[in-house]
Measured scan of single mutants.
Amino acid sequence: TLFEALYDYEARTEDDLSFHKGEKFQILNSSEGDWWEARSLTTGETGYIPSIYLAPV
């Protein structure tokens, strides 16, 4: 399942991933609670993103 960003997000740590509204992600690991490891389909970068900023596509 792909997810789309509902809002912009600016990374706060080196493990976080910055993204823009409308960016799409492949989720790599969603077992860490509210922060999911994801790969951006726009940039190819991976990192942790807040799941509350996402909606399934």
Rank of each mutant, 00 (worst) to 15 (best):
S30P: 09
P50I: 06
W35S: 07
E32A: 13
Y9N: 02
K21Q: 08
E10Q: 12
S18H: 07
E32P: 09
A55N: 07
Y7G: 07
Y7W: 12
D16N: 12
A5R: 00
L2Q: 06
V57C: 08
Q26K: 09
G44M: 07
D15W: 15
L2A: 05
E14I: 12
E32R: 15
E14V: 12
T43L: 01
L2T: 08
L6R: 06
N29G: 10
Y9L: 03
L41F: 06
R39D: 01
E4F: 13
F3L: 04
N29T: 08
L17A: 02
A38F: 02
L28N: 04
Q26M: 12
A11N: 05
E10F: 10
I52W: 15
F3S: 02
S40N: 11
E23G: 02
Y7L: 10
D16A: 15
Y48N: 07
G33N: 11
S30R: 12
Y9C: 05
V57I: 12
G22I: 00
E14T: 13
F3Y: 15
E45H: 12
S30G: 10
A5P: 00
F19L: 07
E23M: 06
P56R: 06
G44L: 07
L2P: 04
T1N: 12
A55T: 14
L6S: 03
A11S: 13
S18C: 05
T43Y: 02
V57R: 03
G44I: 01
F3R: 03
L41P: 02
L17Y: 07
G44Y: 06
V57T: 08
A55F: 10
E23N: 06
E23H: 06
I27V: 10
T43G: 03
A11H: 06
Y48I: 09
V57H: 06
P50E: 08
D16T: 14
E14Y: 09
A11P: 05
S40K: 12
Y9P: 00
D16E: 15
S18Y: 03
S31P: 10
D8W: 05
A5Q: 00
D34P: 10
L54I: 09
T42R: 13
F25M: 04
Y53A: 15
T46A: 07
F3I: 01
Q26E: 15
F3P: 00
W36M: 05
G47S: 03
D15S: 14
S31K: 11
K24Y: 13
H20S: 14
K24D: 01
V57Q: 05
A55G: 10
L6H: 03
T43Q: 02
I27C: 03
L54A: 03
R12I: 12
S51T: 07
G33T: 13
E45G: 08
T13F: 15
S31Y: 09
D34T: 10
L2F: 10
T42G: 07
G33H: 12
G22M: 03
A38T: 02
I52D: 14
L17W: 05
R12P: 09
N29V: 08
D34V: 09
A38Y: 03
H20E: 09
E14Q: 13
D8C: 08
L41Y: 05
R12Y: 08
P56A: 09
G47T: 03
H20Y: 11
L6G: 02
A38Q: 00
T46Y: 08
G44A: 04
E45V: 10
L17R: 03
E23W: 06
L41R: 03
E32F: 12
K24R: 14
R39T: 11
L17H: 03
Q26P: 00
